[in-house]
Design a protein around this nucleic acid. Structure first.
Length: 114
DNA sequence: GTTGTGACGACTT
DNA sequence: AAAGTCGCCACAA
């Protein structure tokens, strides 16, 4: 069983993602003080009570790709929610401008051509 | 106890 | 670009 204090820390880190921005699972884990525990972030989101009203859609896979099964209803909903708050996609990836300051720049080393 | 799976990710081939 | 490998670990069977 997961320690609920860990879940709380993760949920708090997710709640802190500003509207219009995204963070990767790895970043959320780091911000929660749990480096290398990206998988746990996924678990935490799965276990999160809907009542918490977490911005779960702002958590994405490394490099800005949606991690939910491609073509799934959940994946469509996530993209829709993101676009609805101004997050722009370039192909399957989220534009670099939407990542927070401590995002891993190496993973974001791509740019839509200017 | 062991194995497989997965809302992950960094590395190496 | 694509496919393996490894680290990570909760969970179900």
């Amino acid at each position: 069983m997961v320690d609920t204090t860990l879940l709380e820390r993760i949920w708090a880190a997710v709640a802190a993602i500003p509207r219009g921005q995204v963070a990767t699972y790895g970043e959320v884990a780091r911000r929660a003080g749990l480096p290398r525990r990206a998988r746990l972030v996924g678990t935490a989101l799965r276990l999160a009570p809907a009542q918490r009203r977490l911005p779960w859609h702002r958590v994405v896979g490394a490099g800005g790709r949606i991690s939910l099964p491609a073509g799934s209803e959940a994946a469509r909903e996530q993209r829709l929610r993101l676009e609805r708050e101004g997050v722009r996609f370039v192909g399957a990836r989220i534009a670099a401008e939407h990542f927070g300051a401590d995002a891993d720049l190496d993973a974001l080393l791509w740019r839509p051509r200017d």
